[in-house]
Amino acid sequence: MAREATGVLEAPPQPMGRRVLRVLRGMRRAPILPIFFLGIVVFAGITAPWISPHDPTRGNLADRNLPGFWTGDRTSPKLVVEEVEFGEGFRQVSLEEARELYPGAELGQEVEVLTRRAGFPTYVLGTDHLGRDLLSRTIYGARISLIMAAVTLGVGGVIGIALGLIAGWYGRLVDEIIMRLVDIELSLPLILVALVLVVSLGQSLTIIVAVLAIWIWPRFARMVRGEVLTLKTTDYVSLARVAGASPLRIMFVHLFPGTINTLIVVATLQVGIVILVEASLSFLGAGVPPPDPAWGSMVADGRDRLADAWWIATIPGLAVLLTVMSLNLFGDWLRDKLDPRLRQME
């Protein structure tokens, strides 16, 4: 029965139940709600054209400022008069109109008249000032935010990682130059630079992506460089060098994988910042050009209409708040899990 001594110890196959338990234990204290919410946002962003109930850019002017599921039809008492005086429409109703609703209506009587139709069930979250469906716009807004975040993270991340690897690996003058560039970049007031670019070149997605990429690459570069400086002193890297691996190979095969944990954490937290900055730029009218429904510009649309349609500004703002909040909670959890050292650096 004794196993032959082959020099290799085989772990006994784990029963399925225990393996599931282990995965679950890894997820212990995972922020379930934020992960769930992020799942919804990503799903909505990807499937926006198929799941949105209406066209996000085309509205029906007859359906302006309709509330969503939270209110039903709203009625108010109005005085029945012969002819509605100019500007008194909100408390008077003509006899003719009243008779249509209540056949027995008389002059001088007060009748309940529909003042605002409910948007529900046609418009779950109501409509904006141009009669566009807010739910569809919010869903498409998720798509825009995700695309912006992905593209800027891709561009800025690749630049930042590459420069961070180079700075960390080569050190000396190269490091000095790249890190001073990082310092300069971090001390530029980039939102203002974005405004200057928009005024002289016009509003476009390219500008926003470029500005956001410039915004985030130094953060990646700094982080990766720090990691590389410690990884550089490990034995396996020295051995790779002795074995004659080229710098490029060492950087990408031996150093880069060691930075991935940190990168995931930084990227998660940076996505939140990118979404916030993009929303601010869109709010200022320097972001995603209209009529594309960016969350920031949707808030701007509703800013002056709070008194009669609070939902126009509130809903997209809530979308930003919840998304960024989820990203922060998820990122904090990832950080504690993947890279506890980073906690001190925030």
């Binding site: 929303a279 601010s280 920031g296 808030v299 703002g317 708040l321 909040m325």
Partner: peptide, 11 residues
Amino acid sequence: QSAPSFWLGIM
């Protein structure tokens, strides 16, 4: 950290 300040202001 998470709320867009312009939205917070409007609220």
